[in-house]
Design a protein around this nucleic acid. Structure first.
Lengths: 216, 216
DNA sequence: AGGATATTGAACTCCTCAGTTCATTTCCAT
DNA sequence: ATGGAAATGAACTGAGGAGTTCAATATCCT
């Protein structure tokens, strides 16, 4: 949908909202949730961070659980959208294959390391026990779609004889596994800021290995 | 024959003695933490699950936080040890290279999918904000050591001319990235049981891609 | 058996926090 | 300026849970 525009996002039952308090609340909530986690975040904290009174939160978003759901789905949708957009620069020309893939890898790493993206991912994993449906929803609308789209791009290149790929979906998964490499599993998982320069080196090496396996 | 032959807990017989209560507590705590998460787990739950009175937990382990730390470090040490042992079956003979790597991959996937291993990993990520030191400790004693050991094995093979590897540590990271593939990042992260058969197929494909890139 | 030690259950204290209420104040449109 | 919707702050309720106390009881060792 529209990105970065003055919108209410969901069809709020009542347009009662002086200024964009609602947006301030959601943004502040994301920061607080990211900082201390769901259970440790109190509505007083969030109200203070948003510069808003506690009842205002309830006026707009009903409950802590509802607030969390909105924060997660809205932030995830934005992050997923940006990640999907990366594929717009996917290389179609064979002579630009390696630099093109490297550019894609670079952008993907940037999306991955984005502060909000990391925050929402960490919270999603952390609260997967409490909100399993949220996890599924975000995954279906994000990574699953992305893998499909990437597989399509790879298949086109393979079909044109530029890559040796039998199973495009598997190759797509392996591509992102190589590019992200140990970012998700072995890193501090967003609790510590990632060094984008280091991550970029890993990504370029991942593209190299991918091309060694599937290239030409 | 005391009154109330049907005791409260199903598994634990009324071993009123000071048997290995401590072990029972730690094991029960892992189950409860894994089931509902740290914040949602109450000491009453854990006491009931362990078939033990609440003060007994405090006698042995002091506080909820301390209990969690013990559960995590003990369980992680066990899981990490098993994972390291996998490298004992790492192939040295070149004629058994592919099946040897596949066997290693298979065992690694099995370690990864182990119930306790998944539980401790999920909890570690979930509570990384509250217990960052725990995260670092387990990582240093587990994955970091494992990558180093695997890199050494790969370097030996490369040195003998059986693999074309420039950076063994990077190759090691890419090996496990390919073998685990989307298990960690895109899966439900242990909130849902993983199908080992499906995971095995992914692992074999990962070995295949690894050998396409580095083989001969 | 008998003393030392561990365990138990139950009640209790103290604290945090979600969610609510309400009287008061601020903001905007007309 | 004024009426009305929205926002505020402060106080309150109620639930849930950590951690403690203690007298009664069970187990172990000798």
């Amino acid at each position: 949908m529209s990105v970065g525009d003055t919108e209410k996002t969901t069809a709020a039952p009542s347009e009662r909202g002086r200024l964009d308090k609602r947006r301030a609340i959601v943004e502040a909530a994301l920061r607080v949730f990211a900082r201390v986690g769901y259970a440790q975040a109190s509505l007083d904290m969030i109200a203070a961070e948003a510069g808003v009174a506690k009842p205002t939160i309830y006026n707009h978003l009903g409950s802590k659980e509802n607030l969390f759901r909105h924060v997660m789905t809205e932030t995830a949708a934005r992050a997923n959208g940006k990640t999907l957009e990366v594929l717009d620069s996917f290389p179609n020309e064979v002579d630009r294959l390696r630099p093109g893939l490297e550019e894609v890898a670079h952008k993907l790493v940037a999306c991955y390391c984005d502060e909000q993206s990391q925050a929402v991912r960490r919270l999603l994993y952390a609260e997967a026990v409490r909100f399993p449906d949220l996890f599924d929803e975000v995954r279906a609308s994000g990574p699953d779609q992305f893998i499909e789209a990437l597989a399509g791009r790879l298949a086109r290149l393979a079909n044109a004889g530029h890559l040796r790929i039998e199973d495009p979906v598997r190759a797509a998964n392996q591509f992102i596994a190589l590019v992200y490499e140990e970012l998700p599993t072995l890193s501090t998982f967003g609790s510590r800021p990632l060094d984008p320069k280091e991550a970029d080196k890993v990504a370029v090496a991942g593209v190299d290995t991918f091309l060694r396996a599937f290239g030409e």
